[in-house]
Design a binder for these strands. Structure first.
Lengths: 355, 355
DNA sequence: CTGTTAGCGCATTCAG
DNA sequence: CTGAATGCGCTAACAG
């Protein structure tokens, strides 16, 4: 590995000049500039940022701690974050805790030992991890992604799922549905749940407790909830699910119950994971701006890293959702006339929320 | 940020001793050890690995360059790789090229400037990128994941999809199918295609060219291929798809054509992405050992990083696939007796290939 | 077992 | 505009 001294020698200048060339601080004559460039490419020289960081205090490294990289949502955020970082000459050290708070804590320590300049984290799940984050935040900027459980010392970028949920329910109402079920959790996705209720009320629709099933947020839960809903006297004609996994479970259950989607039951999900487009039928869903989340998180961090005094207090940026209309929703089958045969479904790409 | 000197002062020893304590090289008395530990935790001291790397030549950083982190396959490999690395005290800098060779090249340079000790890469897509990798390999170990297109200077960990494909086709044959279609690509997944043909032949089955549709590897392709297959006089009773996306397309097409899966058409995919388990019906598929891939890649790198002289030449580790049987396959509807009603499908978790 | 010292590769003064 | 000198935080000999 050639060093800056090697470059200097080959270019007939001193290290100081090479350094100035590299950092862009201070003046370097065009002639020197040229010779240095030549030397660098001949030698295949690559600056050692670890060494540079010793004096500059900037490693060019950022840390991203996630709880589940397999989660497509997380993966896409990570992807966008990483690309945005690289565009600014930064690398991101990725640490997947696998949902284990202890691993997350270890990860934070590892990242700190690598002198990352800032941290982006998905919502912490334990008080200990939370404390580790607070401690870290005393040393460097930390921005949280997602829910509001992140300690308040950090900047935050979240998604206004509430308005997304509102759009979804409104859409269903406008299609003519009046018996709209909610399947989800009241805690994890409280915004969606509340939006569901308020939107219903805003349209003068009753909020039948029989149409609300609260539980976990996986496919299994969606499946069971649907079975239960249809065991009732007056089943819903539409379901708003708190996420796509649940929605998929609903579709699956409907299928085995012989209920056609969307003609007999409209289903709408949340997140717009890849799964959604591939479902049968392709799922109408509230899309999360995943790429934008990553980019925004980086932007927030970037500002904290800038020259501006650590001035401003924790900020929160809220991104909005977008309803992606595919083929899992239709007007309710009017009980008056016999319900039509399901239209033959065809492959159709709904617009994606690539931002 | 406290330094080792601060720790030394507080513990009443010298930096040398602190360093020995930290690295584990050389002896440190129990007494000193204790005082140092105390000082460290009181000060919240964290070793600066960038500084350490200056002398040790070891940054504790690894690089992972991927082409698509959103790809669930990649994400899971990355997750496993990262966790394995962290278990050894290493961090991994993740770089997503988004499929752009130029970005990939930039990424490699960025990683090198951060002095990563080794590189793990998914298959390169361009000659230039390939060259960059070869250049990098002169400086540090590089291990490739996936297909065999990776330059031969590197270690490689691949999956024996051929045997997986063989299992899949054999399974179909044992169920009684004789008209088994192949939908996929002959280039990208050549192993699978060849295995399809040879397995058919090995069982004395003809290899009807009308049952082979080659194209791209996405859902759309699967959909179209299926439509085409069923426009023929003698459609297949089973389809082996080169990946899950294609298989999903097949299922979708079958659904719109009014063909029941699995009673009228058996479908089998490849990869076992999350999608597969969530499909209707849950998809039987050839599972890739994604986590194992990541772990193995790390292990290979680890060995190269060890004291052993850079001795041995490029190695290739081949992992085997496993057939995950879910609900998308059944014996062919015997034309003799009327085909039975589709059994009501139920949620059922096939075994996962978590390793 | 432990203190001392000399770099590692680079960015910065500070004089020229 | 540029060279020489100093130190970043730590490890690795080397004497004690």
């Amino acid at each position: 590995m050639p060093t800056a001294y090697d470059v200097a020698a080959k270019a007939g200048v001193s290290v100081g000049t090479v350094s100035r060339y590299l950092t862009g601080n201070g003046y370097v004559s065009a002639a020197a500039r040229e010779r240095i460039a030549a030397a660098i490419s001949e030698l295949g020289y690559i600056q050692n940022r670890a060494a540079a960081s010793l004096t500059t205090k900037r490693t060019g490294l950022l840390g991203f701690v996630v709880s589940q990289l397999k989660n497509p949502f997380t993966a896409e955020v990570a992807s966008a974050l990483g690309q945005a970082a690289r565009a600014r000459g930064y690398g991101v050290v990725l640490a997947d805790s696998g949902g284990d708070p202890n691993q997350a804590i270890d990860a934070v320590e590892l990242l700190r030992s690598h002198e990352v300049e800032g941290l982006v984290v998905t919502p912490p799940e334990s008080p200990e991890y939370n404390a580790a984050l607070v401690a870290a935040a005393r040393t460097m900027p930390v921005v949280g992604i997602g829910l509001h459980t992140t300690p308040s010392v950090t900047d935050l970028v979240t998604v206004d799922t509430r308005s997304g949920a509102q759009q979804a329910v409104t859409y269903l109402i406008e299609l003519g549905h009046t018996r709209i079920a909610y399947i989800g959790s009241s805690t994890m996705a409280s915004g969606r749940y509340q939006a569901y209720r308020t939107t219903l009320e805003a349209h003068g629709l009753p909020c039948d407790p029989e149409l609300i099933v609260l539980g976990s947020l996986d496919r299994e839960a969606g499946h069971q909830a649907t079975t239960r809903l249809f065991a009732q006297d007056r089943p819903p004609t539409a379901v708003f699910a708190a996420n796509d996994a649940v929605a998929l479970g609903v579709v699956q259950a409907a299928h085995s119950l012989g209920i056609a989607v969307p003609t007999q039951l409209s289903v709408i999900g949340c997140d717009n994971v890849d799964l959604a487009a591939h479902a049968i039928p392709p799922l109408t869903t509230v899309a999360q701006p995943m790429a934008l989340l990553g980019q925004t998180a980086l932007e927030l961090l970037w500002q904290r890293l800038g020259p501006d005094p650590a001035g401003h207090s924790p900020r929160t940026v809220t991104l909005s959702c977008e309803l992606v209309i595919r083929e899992s929703c239709a007007p309710p089958a009017s009980p008056g006339r016999p319900s039509v045969q399901p239209p033959s479904e065809r492959t159709h790409h709904g617009q994606h929320a690539e931002s």
